[in-house]
Design a protein around this nucleic acid. Structure first.
Lengths: 335, 335
DNA sequence: GTGAAAGCGCTAACAT
DNA sequence: ATGTTAGCGCTTTCAC
């Protein structure tokens, strides 16, 4: 028994300073009129006890936790890692904390995280997870903002200009002399805006598209095998690859090196994302860089503005246009 | 006024079910004897209101938040990203949430995060940040576990067997015929166990060590320039590089490609970490893989066991030996 | 089997 | 300029 180290409470501070708990609260929050004398005594007591206000109690009372739930596929991938750093930084500047949830591509997991975040009374959610068709999002009464993937027309979405990126990459391949650039992506379809960009450029040039897909969550070594088989099938008729993420581009480069295919002479490669980490690992890779810091700041601003002005409009039901930010082409030796 | 969507509370459920709040609590926590009838009615009311217990209130009452603070340099780097995914997964399995703090190499920031985490009454802290000399850690009364870097002999530390890794990498370079392998690392010194491994192997072989350093938080493009200048200075007398992380190794490979230096014929390269992301980006890279999942599970177990059995020993003052897990050599074409 | 009351740590409202 | 009271949503006594 005895000194089970319990954190000191406001009452402890109040007793030590010889004032009421309310006064302590007032000193902490700088509210109302306080004599300098009282302020000093309280400050001293706080110091002495190494007192720190209990944010849990504040949250219970104030009905806001200053916590934001962030759901991402996995921060093990540099793109999402960089996004989470950007979010955390932007949130921190506005006094918010981040609860991280890595959904790992499991819809079931994502649903559970949603429940959990609601139970923990986060003030809002930023989601970048890749599972579509999670109807639970529709029922959420909390402010939500998505990054990259669009969840529903009613939920604000922030992303880079994927279609321009797709065009930029494809145009570069053509400009460098590719006769038949292929697309290597995760999910093909009209919602893949990078693919839309790729197709539009090829259509204008009168070239038949060539598209390979490897599911986003395919584990190694299956993933490399699939990419390898696809390359073997198409080369050398295909002479350029637009990979919709840098890691796929890296796998292509590795395969080419092993197959003794010269890059860029026999095969040109362009990636997508342009994270700092991958640019350090693969400085030779030409890629389309997403403005991650911009996306993150914008997502956080959108979300927190909703939260702060939440009194009258708990959930806005009007459709919102996605916010798109421009990408940058980074040219290097692979094209 | 009117329907400002307030989350339903236990009282709302109780009213709807025609029972007392206490009974609702009992149903939720499966405590005491309850008639099936009551259970059903409460369950139905919960369903109807879409009620979710408020974890904030539970935390205030129960004195534990089920939140763990995780401080890392930056999850934008794949190693730390993968670590955080591993931690989050291990924590989730035991019913804990993760508050992420990216210290970005700023000691001041790290101090603030510590304050913040204490204020939020996290149940424990896992730290992998790279700032030494943060005396605040010593004052913490909370369970702390560190990953990779050692903070103090009293704080449990979990990491891979860095020294063996250093030996493995260096031995491989020698075995492949290097006459003079150099070390490229962040901070040189006796606390750099990968360097210790490197030096021990070279000493045994009677070879003079060659060491280059680039500070961990050096931004691009300065970082690449420093590495490039160092390589220019030493090649070709140096014919092998042991880079203590994979991204540095990638930068070396990029430099070699641009300088038309053949890898592995003129220069052999070995990295360190072996994260999934970098192995996808750089499949040709030989590297030492850290057992990240093992490290994470172990760190979480250590921490949570301390937390659960925390009643008698708030802070254990005895020195603890670091827990080291074996690394794996992954051979590829770069050596 | 179930309910009433007290209290976790804090702050807003209402005194004085 | 400061103290008293009440209550945020929950669980844990202690009654009945």
């Amino acid at each position: 028994m005895s000194d089970v180290h319990q954190a000191p409470s406001q009452v402890d501070v109040a007793k030590l300073a010889g004032v009421s708990p309310t006064t302590v609260s007032r000193v902490l929050n700088n509210r109302g009129y306080l004599s300098q004398h009282t302020k000093d005594r309280v400050a001293q007591a706080i110091e002495e006890l190494n007192y720190r206000p209990n944010e849990v109690a504040r949250a219970l009372l104030g009905q806001r936790t200053k916590m934001i739930g962030v759901i991402m596929p996995t921060v093990a991938l540099p793109f999402f890692g960089e996004v989470v750093v950007g979010l955390e930084h932007a949130l921190e500047r506005r006094g918010y904390r981040l609860i991280l949830c890595n959904s790992l591509g499991r819809a079931e997991q994502e649903r559970e995280y949603l429940e959990l975040l609601m139970s923990n009374r986060v003030d809002g959610i930023i989601s970048g997870a890749h599972n579509d068709a999670i109807p639970e999002y529709a029922e959420i009464t909390l402010p939500v903002v998505t990054i990259d993937r669009e969840l529903s027309p009613h939920i604000p979405n922030v992303r880079c200009d994927n279609e321009s990126g797709g065009r930029l990459a494809t145009e570069l391949l053509l400009r460098r002399g590719c006769r038949r650039p292929a697309l290597l992506t995760s999910t093909s379809g009209p919602r893949n805006l990078r693919e839309v960009g790729y197709r539009s450029v090829l259509a204008k040039a009168g070239i038949e598209p060539t598209i390979g897909t490897v599911n986003f969550h395919t584990p190694e070594p299956l993933r490399s095998q699939q990419i390898g088989r696809w390359l073997e099938k198409w080369l050398p008729s295909v002479d350029g690859i637009f990979a919709t993420d840098d890691l796929m581009a890296g796998t292509v480069l590795g395969w080419a090196a092993r197959a003794r295919i010269a890059v860029p002479d026999q095969l040109r490669v362009v990636g997508f994302d342009g994270t700092d980490a991958v640019r350090r690992a693969l400085p030779m890779l030409t890629t389309i860089r997403q403005p991650i810091p911009l996306i993150c700041r914008s997502a956080v601003d959108l979300l927190l503005d909703r939260i702060d002005g939440k009194t009258q409009a708990p959930v806005d039901r009007r459709p919102v246009k996605p916010l798109e930010f421009p990408v940058t082409l980074i040219e290097a030796e692979t094209t």
